[in-house]
Simulated scan of single mutants.
Amino acid sequence: MANRFKARMTKEFEEEHQDWIKQWLGEFIDADGYVHGYSVGSYIVGDVMESTDEYVVLEYWVPIEEHSILPEKPEEQANE
């Protein structure tokens, strides 16, 4: 199993996509406002939904404040 992380999304992204965040990312955001997933550069991303030798479709990707990234605790990972 790959290591999962949590981090705060950028303020710009949060302000620009408020409605989309509530509708599509709600289950990936905890009560403290951290979005959970896999760390890829300056993003937290979801699972791979589809892939070929030409492209990859991720469940979601969110730009993050890199200084806020933390590893998920084991009890948070158990809820997957």
Rank of each mutant, 00 (worst) to 15 (best):
V40Q: 11
D53R: 13
F28E: 02
K73M: 15
E75D: 14
Y60R: 06
D32L: 13
I29C: 04
E54K: 09
Y38Q: 05
P74T: 04
E66I: 12
M49Q: 12
G41R: 04
E66Q: 09
Y43T: 04
E59Q: 14
E75P: 03
V57N: 15
K73V: 14
Q77D: 07
K73H: 13
V35K: 01
F28I: 02
H67V: 11
G46P: 02
E75H: 15
F28H: 07
S42E: 13
V56L: 12
G46T: 03
E59K: 13
V45S: 02
V48T: 14
P63D: 01
D32S: 10
S51V: 06
V48L: 13
V35L: 04
T52W: 05
P71C: 06
V35Q: 00
Y43L: 11
L70Q: 13
Y38H: 09
V62R: 00
W61F: 13
P71Y: 05
K73W: 10
Y43V: 05
G37A: 04
S68G: 05
S39H: 14
E54N: 07
M49G: 10
D30V: 09
W61P: 00
V62H: 01
F28G: 00
D53M: 12
L58I: 14
E76N: 03
G41D: 07
L58E: 08
H36F: 04
E66F: 07
H67T: 12
D30A: 10
Y60A: 01
Q77G: 11
E27L: 05
P63L: 05
T52C: 04
P71T: 07
G33S: 11
M49W: 10
D53G: 11
G33F: 11
Q77W: 09
A31E: 14
I44D: 00
K73F: 13
W61D: 07
D30R: 10
W61L: 07
L70H: 06
P63R: 02
I29K: 01
D47V: 11
H67C: 09
A31H: 13
V62E: 01
E59N: 06
H36G: 03
G33D: 08
D32C: 14
Y43H: 12
Y55G: 11
I64M: 03
L58C: 09
Y55K: 15
I44E: 00
K73R: 15
K73Q: 12
V35A: 02
H67I: 10
V62P: 00
S68C: 08
E50H: 10
V40F: 10
V56T: 15
D30I: 08
V62K: 00
V45W: 01
E76F: 05
Y60G: 04
L70V: 06
V57S: 15
P71L: 07
H36E: 06
A78W: 06
V62A: 02
S39A: 13
S68Y: 05
G46L: 04
A78N: 05
V48A: 12
I64T: 02
H36L: 07
Y34N: 05
E54H: 07
V35C: 01
H36W: 03
Y34W: 09
V35M: 02
S51H: 11
S51G: 12
S42H: 10
D32K: 15
G37N: 01
Q77M: 13
D32Q: 15
I64K: 00
E27S: 07
I69C: 03
A31R: 14
D30M: 10
V56G: 05
E50L: 14
E54T: 06
G33I: 12
H36K: 12
